[in-house]
Structure formats: C-alpha cells, structure tokens
Write a protein that binds this DNA or RNA. Structure first.
Lengths: 128, 128
DNA sequence: TGAGCGGTTGACTTTTACGTAAATCAGCGA
DNA sequence: TCGCTGATTTACGTAAAAGTCAACCGCTCA
C-alpha cells in the first residue's frame, strides 16, 4: 500500500476538484499531514474521502456525513458516551433503511416504465 | 378516493411548506388545476409530489427528478423516442444500483461500529 | 537563472432549493 | 359591512457546496 498521495492523485482517482478536497478539509472531515505547505494524504485520508463521496451520492449533507464519520471512529469514553453512539448508529440506520425503501419503490416504477416502453415497441413492430 | 386536495392539506400530509410545493410547480414538476387563482391538486398531483420527495431523499436534484418523472410518463412517440426512453431508464437504474451499493457499504460499516461499541460496553461491564 | 509545473491561500461568485416578507384577493360567517 | 382565514403573486434573502480567479511559493531541469 502507498504511503501517501498528492491532492491531484486523489482528484484523478475520485473525479473531484482540488477545491472540493480542500473544502472537506476546511470542514474538518479530513486532516492530511503536511510537508511544508503541501498536503500529503495517507491511506486513511483516502478511505475517508471515499466515505465522504459515498455519503454525498446518498444525498447526505456535509454535516450529516460528519456525524456518520464520527460514529465510524466509534468507541472511546464511558458508558454514557457509548450508548449515545449506539443511539446515533440506529438513527442513521433508519435513514438508510428509508433510502433503501425509496430505491426499491423507484426501481419498481422503472420496471413498469420499461415494460410499457417494450409493450409500445411491440405494437409498433406488429403494425409495420 | 378524494377528487382534489388544497395546498395546505398536502403540506400537512408531506411535511413541506407551501413555498416548496409552489416551487415545484414553477419548475414544471407538477401542474395542479385552478379554481380561480387557487390551486387544486388531483390525486395524480399528489402521487407526483410523493415521487418528488422520494427523489429528494435519495439525493437527486430537481433537474434529475424531472428526468425521472419524464420516464415514468413514458411511451408516446415513435421507435427512436422510445428507445431513447429505454436508454434513460437504464441510466437511472445504474445510478440507483450505485446508491443501493453505497447503502450496503455504509450499513456494513455501521454494523462494525456497533460491534465495537458493544465490545467496549462489555469491557466496561466486566471491569466494574 | 529563468521558465514551467504543481501546490497553496484568500476572496469573490455561482447554483440550487427553498425561506421570508409584503401586498393583494376571495369567500364566509356574525 | 367588517374582519378573519387561507390562498396568491412578487421580490428579495440565504445556506450549502462548491467554482473561479489572482497572486504567490518552491522545486527542478535545461
């Protein structure tokens, strides 16, 4: 595994701009190390970026993604803290479950749309 | 089934503002009929609104939701048009499939986070 | 040694998806 | 006829998530 990545390597791999990556750093989502002023991204930063973009595709806001990343890091602290973590995990799971349902519903309507397109094509074929 | 709904009935049912619903009309997503100046929403408008909000939860933009709604309406026109529709349907399906995968991945990481929280709780319990 | 290349900072701008406020209107019950 | 309620239009405001631009730095290699 590579030790570090430059910012442009990551922009190419993930198809985002440098501005975007720096923005995520400003928002506290990733904390690359520095050599002089230049950012160096470790494998863990790269994984974080992957998780951030995954969250974006699912329509989570930066703030929500931050929360999700927090629970990934998980457990330090005493019982109260950990129970709070568990509660948050369940919240996020519910949201994901809702999205999953939304996807199923949308998929089903896509199937119906496809069906009726194919039906229409068949009609056209027959009448020719 | 009800004949029509007022705008406030829909805001209450779906938990959105009147501004939001009017915005969707401005964007051409729904076209309620009018009695005088007042909007009247038919069952089909209500279903559209449901689909719009589903799209929003999945992180689609208004423009993308518009496209999705277009393919729901589906088939009129000749073969070329319909084949174009079918292509669009498959594009959207790919996007949905990606989101589905993203959800699975996130869910799995949630499970891991939960595991390690529970593990930490067990430790705390034992040491007490 | 100077030109190019990749990276950085900072500031301003843009797009999307509404929020908010003001003025207006239409029906309705007392 | 008054005042309330609920709806409408118009217009400006705003937060989030970047895009864009300018000025600058530090290396390297020809």
């Amino acid at each position: 595994m590579r030790e570090t990545y430059t910012i442009t390597e990551l922009t190419k791999e993930f198809g985002v701009s440098t501005r975007t990556i720096r923005f995520y750093e400003d928002e506290g989502l990733i904390k690359p190390i520095r050599r002089g002023r230049t950012r160096l991204f470790r494998p863990s930063d790269r994984i974080l970026l992957r998780q951030i973009l995954r969250g974006k595709r699912l329509g989570f806001s930066i703030a929500e993604i931050k929360e999700i990343i927090e629970v990934y890091k998980a457990p330090s602290g005493e019982e109260g803290q950990i129970n709070l973590m568990l509660a948050r995990i369940n919240e996020k799971r519910d949201e994901l479950e809702q999205k999953r349902q939304d996807i199923e519903d949308t998929m089903r309507e896509m199937d119906e749309a496809e069906e009726s397109c194919l039906g229409r094509l068949a009609e056209l074929g027959v009448s020719q």
